[in-house]
Design a protein around this nucleic acid. Sequence first.
DNA 1: ATACAAGTTAAAGTTAACTTTAAGTCAAGA
DNA 2: TCTTGACTTAAAGTTAACTTTAACTTGTAT
Lengths: 151, 151
Amino acid sequence: MIYTVGEAAKILNVAPSTIRYYDKEGLLPFVERSGGGIRVFQEKDFDWLFIIECLKKSGLSIKDIKSYIDMALKGDETIDERLALFQKQREKVMKQMEDLQHTLDTLNYKCWYYETAKKAGTTAVPSNMTIEEIPEPLRAAKTALDRIHQK
Amino acid sequence: MIYTVGEAAKILNVAPSTIRYYDKEGLLPFVERSGGGIRVFQEKDFDWLFIIECLKKSGLSIKDIKSYIDMALKGDETIDERLALFQKQREKVMKQMEDLQHTLDTLNYKCWYYETAKKAGTTAVPSNMTIEEIPEPLRAAKTALDRIHQK
DNA sequence: ATACAAGTTAAAGTTAACTTTAAGTCAAGA
DNA sequence: TCTTGACTTAAAGTTAACTTTAACTTGTAT
């Protein structure tokens, strides 16, 4: 099965111009062309595109994704470098998830805060509650908020 | 305790210009000024800044954070809207964490792939392994990669 | 009183990652 | 063969979120 840039774009859920942009930036040197110059995407190309998408989601820039592609094309001599790259991105994503969990904790606290305010008709009610009146799973976020004041 | 923009920036770990930019965009209408026009940050201002940071990390734009600030200043009549906003951002962050988990699964697969390649001296070894030879916790990511080929 | 680090503003500049435009080419169906 | 939708490129435009610059002011320390 082969695909045009428009079909590949639909499968990957991106704009065709995005794929052309990636190609222009050197991310898709493996994509072949028809006699007339039209990009021909094959099954194997989707493996590359999937990894590009993964690296992008992990926060790698287009430029750094290009270095990965270049490394991969060099073959087995770059195995160590590529392993180091994926290990580094894994660390970065784990850190991102930790950060997002803190953000989520704060959002949960604020949801409780406004749910309580809604029931009472005023934000004065949750605002004036003592730490004991705040549901246990939300106290940590509230405490994090308060910690700022100890500087 | 009061702080200048530079001191506040250090506490929040951002550039002073970032705080001035937020102020210019209307995110900090509550920050007072000295007689000479210098911003005076008080303890209460850090509560606002902490929530601004949280909303930013949840993916809200500066413009949308401004609407939240405007709502909050309107008082109790906007409790419902503010609750809805935090609930929506909570959903968005949970979705982001799910996506990041998939990214992490793929990165873990690739780390295993290159660790195996490193030991063998060639990527041919992990490439040619059957699904049974791939460690169980990594099979899902490999399968997700393969799923693309069934379209 | 004076120096000077850090504050102020408005306006211009930066960056990344696309997207759009314009002018033209390819290829599949009638 | 002709139409037509999708392809091609180069170049310019977009957007968000800052950052930098320039010219000037404030306020603390000597």
